[in-house]
Structure formats: structure tokens, C-alpha cells
Design a protein around this nucleic acid. Structure first.
Length: 492
RNA sequence: GGCGGCGUAGCCAAGAGGCCUAAGGCGACGGUUUGCAAAACCGUUAUUCGUCGGUUCGAAUCCGACCGCCGCCUCCA
């Protein structure tokens, strides 16, 4: 059985088959860059990162597109809302585009630290205004949209499949609408494709309907179409975007193109913090930078970025994830366990005797691989995949303790760690380099300890020992210089 | 009010009719190793899966009721 994915559109798991053999287009809703990324972003993007990594592991040629929303995302869907970027720009007294750039860099920086692969294409909404206007024109032409007072709205009543993704009924929504309908809209559920800009609005572009800016939902339709085609294989995003965002994307795209927009809709579940919804108003927002540094009142320490990744992969992407200091602490310990084993393994590998891999070991590794793939094929069950990694850890530690393993045996284990734990899960690194600056400071500390020992020996007139220490350092390329009151060292 | 999801050991978390007297991780406890420490290894830590009923030869897994929690329906990954 191949890869099964839970498709929100049909509400069950289904075998994944790409549209074109061997090639997969993946589009994931990216961040609106008006603040630093938080734990919610991490869950979403780590989850889809693993999807992309696993598709590549299976041999697919994947094009991964993830947008950057830098315009059009309003704080409120009723017409009163302001653009999030504009609002933050005002607050931080920056140019909106400078603000967007600043937080885009911050976002990539955080994602790099979580070891998320960069998307192949990271299109900006503001860079696709022309295409967005074109899509609005098409929708007007096909009479799926109407202009009113300088804005253009999508006429939901014209699109009969509206609600199919989120299981909603248009009539009921109209009846139960909570927001005061805009006087320009024919129906309260209609959504803005293009919004008229007030003169003082900073971000605005000329259009056939006057100066304005695009509606939020439009960008994803336009950019996925542009880079992946009219029908894409996989569209991912957070569960909270299923409605209305993704529903609107389907309506726009399918109305304009007359063909299916997305074949597999994947939604990841939400993050809570200490069992509470993470929200700015609840004051329990934890940004990734805070988690990395430990600078948050709910955290007792700093956490390695991969430990956060590990916590996310410890549960299923469609389950809600509760972040707590205790959970993070456990993930950190677990991550260190895997890391220690891999480091020790590689150290031993360098000094292992020649020889072929043990036959029963090959069998065990094949079995673990099979179980790993079985878990991943089952809608990306990373929790089980991770448990397989821990079994590999135990197997490895036992072998290392027994000793006498050949190069080929250890290399086979290392290859599996690298492939499954590294390439797919993104938890095992190819190398664990020390930072040169930190190393330098460490060497200085070590040499000073030896100098101290030598000083003690000299004081006790044990010159043989003192000279032996100096000779030893000399062999390591370190020269000691005895000054009147101190001993200094330098590289040979 | 409408739609959807969840409740498994001290904590996190898989499992979705018989392989479950329920993976894996963290923590705790005991042991091996150890001058001390760290790491590692071995073992123990849920006869039970929110509660109560039902279906079935058989249920954590299906159905119903109830209790509790959460999400979406307004912006949020």
C-alpha cells in the first residue's frame, strides 16, 4: 500500500496519486508577515515540511510553493477591518513593505532553525497584483462577481459548491450570519475580491475599478495557479483556514477555470498552550524566538529548535498539540537521546574494524525501515515513525555497548539514521559542528587547566611532570611561554 | 444556536473490532556498569482506555446517552 493521506474534501484517507506521474505540486498557505512566527506556525510548517520531505523520499519530484502574505489580509472580514500589515506598520512606525520584509526574514530564520526546507517558490502577494486583477476580471466576465462602489465581491449564490470543503450550507449561513452585512454586498456571505482603498490607505494599486487592493483569499488562488497550474495536487494549511479562506479559494478558482482546483486538501490541527487556545488576547502567545531563548514566563529554560520540531512530530498533524514547558522538556530530553546516539555512532564508525555488515543486523534494519514507511504511509503518522527511531536508538546503543561492530555494520545504521531521521523527519543532522568561537573558548579553558597543573608541579619541584605536560602540549601544537608571573600559550 | 473534533499511565502520545493482559518518549523507582559523575544497558511503572448502557463469540476500537474539554462559524498557522 502506498501513501494514504486524509483528504479534508472527502473526509477520509485516500491513496495519494499525483496528477502527473512522478511529479507533485504542493501549495501551503504561508504566513501573514506582520509579527514574529509563533508555535502555531511551527506546527503547521513542520508538518508540511515532513510531507514534502517524505514525498521526496518516495521519489517524487516535488515543487513546493508557500506564499508570503504581505497585503490584503484584513483584521476583520466585515468591511470595517484594516489591513494587518498596514496596521502593524503604523504601530511600529515602519513602511509597510519594510515591515513585511523584516518579518519575512524573521520567519525564514525561524524556519531554518526548525530545519524546515525552504519552499521552492515563496511568492509575495504584493508581487502578484496584476495576476490578481486579471482573475477578478475573469470572474466579473463570467458573472461570478459584481462590482459595487469601487469594490468587487464574489457572488456566492452563483457557485453551488460553496461550502463543500467545510460542510457548510449557504442558506443556513446567510440565515445565521453574525456580522452585519456590508451594504455593498448582495449576500452577507459574499466575500471581497478587490477592495476600494480610502485615500489615506498606504498600500493601493490602480485597477479597472479604481484605486484599491486585493482581498486576502485571492492571492492563494492566483499564485498556486501561476506556479502549479489550474489543478494542483496538494494544498495544505491550518484547520482554522478551512473556512472561509480555503472555501473562498475553491470558489474563485473553480469558477474562473471550470475545473477542480485542489485534489488533496490537508489541514493541520491547532496549537494550545497549557490547554488554552493560543491567542494574543489571552496573553499566552509564545513566539519561536521566545521558545528558543526561554524568554517567556511559561518556560523554565531555553529549548533547542530541533526539540520543538521533535515535540511537533511526536503527535499527529491532525491532532491538536498542547505546548507546555513539561512537554517541551520531555521532547528536549528525547532529542538529546537520539543526538547522543548518532554522535557516538559516528565517532565509533571512524575507528571501526573493516568488515561486512552483520546479516541479522541488515534484517533488523530492513524491518525498522518497513515499519517506518508503514507509519508514514498511514497519513504521515510521525509519532509512530519517531518511535521507530527510538527503537533504532536502543538497537544502536546495545551494539555499541557490545563493541566489535564492523565499519559496514555501523555505516548501515548511520545511513538509516541519516535517511529516516534526517532526510525525512529532519531531526538527525548530517554534522554536528561546534561553533568555532565556542571551540576557541573551550580550548583556552582546557589549556589553562593544564597550565595550572604544570604550575602546581613546578611549585612541588616535580620538574619531570611539569616538563612532560609542556612536551605534551608541544606535541599538540601549543607553545607555553613562562612570563614572570603568568604562563601564556600560543599556537605553534 | 449550527458544524466538526477530542477524552488512553504522573506528563506527552500511538493504536480505530480479535496480533492489545495497549507502541514510543519524558519522568519516577530498582538493578548492571562506575573512585565520583555523566552516558548507556536491564527491569518495574494502564488486567485497562471519561462515565453508564447496548451491539458482538469478542470493543480502547462500533452504536446510544451522559459528563468534561477544544476548534470553526469574525482575524489567526
Amino acid at each position: 500500500m502506498g501513501l494514504q493521506l486524509y483528504n479534508s474534501l472527502i473526509r477520509r484517507k485516500a491513496e495519494f496519486k499525483p496528477r502527473s506521474k512522478g511529479r507533485v505540486g504542493v501549495y501551503v498557505c504561508g504566513p501573514t508577515v506582520y509579527g514574529h512566527a509563533h508555535l502555531g506556525h511551527a506546527k503547521s510548517y513542520v508538518s508540511f515540511d515532513v510531507l514534502v520531505r517524505y514525498l521526496r523520499y518516495l521519489g517524487y519530484n516535488v515543487t513546493y510553493v508557500q506564499n508570503i502574505t504581505d497585503v490584503g489580509h484584513l483584521t476583520d472580514d466585515a468591511d470595517a477591518g484594516e489591513d494587518k500589515i498596514a496596521e502593524a506598520a503604523k504601530r511600529e512606525q515602519m513602511h509597510p513593505m519594510a515591515l513585511a520584509e523584516y518579518y519575512t526574514r524573521s520567519y525564514f530564520d525561524d524556519m531554518d532553525r526548525l530545519n524546515c526546507l525552504r519552499p521552492d517558490i515563496s511568492p509575495r502577494a504584493s508581487g502578484h497584483i496584476i495576476e490578481q486583477i486579471e482573475l477578478v476580471k475573469t470572474l466579473l466576465q463570467k458573472q461570478y462577481a459584481y462590482e459595487a462602489n469601487g469594490s468587487v465581491y464574489f457572488d456566492v449564490s452563483k457557485f453551488k459548491n460553496y461550502g463543500k470543503l467545510s460542510g457548510r450550507n449557504v442558506e443556513e449561513m446567510i440565515a445565521g450570519a453574525r456580522v452585519e452585512p456590508s451594504p455593498d454586498k448582495k449576500n452577507p456571505v459574499d466575500f471581497a475580491l478587490w477592495k476600494k482603498a480610502e485615500p489615506n490607505h498606504i498600500m493601493q494599486w490602480p485597477s479597472p475599478w479604481g484605486m484599491g487592493y486585493p482581498g486576502w483569499h485571492l492571492e492563494c488562488s492566483v499564485m498556486s495557479m501561476k506556479y502549479l497550474g489550474k489543478t494542483i495536487d496538494i494544498h495544505g494549511g491550518g484547520l482554522e483556514n478551512q473556512f472561509p479562506h480555503h472555501e473562498c479559494e475553491i470558489a474563485q478558482s473553480e469558477a474562473a477555470n471550470g475545473q477542480q482546483f485542489v485534489r488533496y486538501w490537508l489541514h493541520n490541527n491547532m496549537v494550545t498552550v497549557d490547554s488554552q487556545k493560543m491567542g494574543k488576547s489571552l496573553n499566552n502567545f509564545v513566539t519561536l524566538k521566545q521558545a528558543f531563548s526561554g524568554a517567556h514566563e511559561r518556560l523554565t529554560r531555553s529549548y533547542d529548535p530541533p526539540a520543538i520540531r521533535q515535540l511537533i512530530l511526536n503527535s499527529h498533524y491532525r491532532s491538536p498539540l498542547d505546548f507546555s514547558d513539561a512537554a517541551l522538556f520531555a521532547a528536549q530530553s528525547g532529542y538529546e537521546r537520539i543526538t547522543e546516539t548518532v554522535k557516538t555512532l559516528r565517532k565509533r564508525l571512524a575507528a571501526a574494524p573493516q568488515g561486512l555488515a552483520a546479516e541479522d543486523l541488515a534484517k533488523q534494519l530492513a524491518l525498522l525501515t518497513e515499519r517506518f514507511e508503514g507509519a508514514m504511509n498511514d497519513d504521515l503518522n510521525t509519532a509512530v515513525a519517531l518511535s521507530v527511531m527510538f527503537e533504532l536508538v536502543r538497537l544502536t546503543n546495545k551494539l555499541l555497548e557490545d563493541g566489535g561492530q564492523t565499519i559496514d555494520s555501523l555505516a548501515a545504521i548511520d545511513a538509516l539514521f541519516t535517511k529516516l531521521g534526517g532526510d525525512v523527519l529532519g531531526l538527525v543532522k548530517d554534522e554536528y559542528p561546534h561553533s568555532p568561537a565556542a571551540d576557541e573558548a573551550r580550548i583556552d579553558r582546557v589549556v589553562k587547566i593544564i597550565i595550572e597543573q604544570r604550575a602546581k608541579a613546578r611549585k612541588l619541584k616535580d620538574f619531570a611532570r611539569a616538563d612532560a605536560l609542556r612536551a605534551g602540549l608541544d606535541e599538540a601544537g601549543i607553545i607555553l611561554e613562562d612570563k614572570p608571573d603568568v604562563t601564556e600559550w600560543r599556537w605553534k
